[in-house]
């Protein structure tokens, strides 16, 4: 520093003036036995602030280049590709698993859909069968019904015809009875009357 150089200069001057002290200077000590401050050797307290000391720049730069270069190479060639690969493998695996899950889900949905369509067709079929059976039964029933009805109406008509016949017969019988009654009544009363006249009379009465 500036102060020290002037101090050394002053000492050098005194040494020059007093020739006998040159020996002491060669010793490296001054008159008081203290270490002389020369330009080649830094005293402990006058060392420059280390971060600003240009003498340390060269070696530090050298070692920085070596260490940082080594770090860069290790990172770019070994460590980072490895981590990147791990992350990529994991991402692929996760994506693969997700795709597999999605595939399975779709499969399940497909199965559910199939089941439902099948169920729907089965239901429709059963419905159809039921309908068909119902119509069949109904038609059969109708046929039987109409058959029975026809038979019944036939029987009815036969019965009616017989009733009519019976009635007619009965009516004829009534006429006969009435005529005979008339004959017997008339004959009892007065004159003889032929059965034929009586019948005509009854007939006219019945008709009238």
């Amino acid at each position: 520093m500036a102060g020290d150089t002037t101090k050394t200069d002053m000492q050098a001057q005194t040494i020059d003036q007093n020739g006998e002290e040159i020996v002491i200077k060669l010793d490296g000590k001054d008159a008081y036995g203290e270490q002389l401050q020369t330009s080649t050797q830094y005293p402990k307290e006058e060392k420059p602030f280390p971060p600003f000391d240009p003498a340390t720049f060269g070696p530090q730069l050298f070692w920085l280049v070596i260490s940082f270069g080594a770090l860069y190479l290790l990172m770019s060639k070994i460590a980072l590709p490895k981590i990147g690969e791990i992350l990529e493998v994991r991402r692929d695996r996760i994506e693969g698993d997700l795709a597999e899950a999605e595939r399975l889900r779709q499969k399940t949905e497909q199965a559910i859909e199939n089941y439902e369509t099948e169920l729907a067709t089965a239901r429709a079929k059963s419905h159809e069968i039921a309908e068909k059976t119902r119509t069949e039964i109904k038609s059969e029933l109708d046929a039987k019904h109409s058959e029975v009805e026809a038979e019944l109406s036939k029987k009815l008509s036969i019965a009616e015809a017989r009733i009519k016949e019976t009635k007619l017969a009965a009516l004829v019988n009534v006429d006969e009875i009435a005529s005979e009654t008339l004959v017997s009544v008339i004959s009892k009363l007065s004159t003889k009357i032929s059965i034929k006249d009586a019948r005509d009379a009854v007939k006219s009465v019945v008709k009238g």
């Binding site: 260490s67 940082f68 770090l71 290790l74 990172m75 070994i78 460590a79 980072l80 490895k82 981590i83």
Partner: peptide
């Protein structure tokens, strides 16, 4: 450098 590389690797 040794700590970083050692750790990561």
């Amino acid at each position: 450098v040794a700590i970083i590389s050692g750790w990561l690797i």
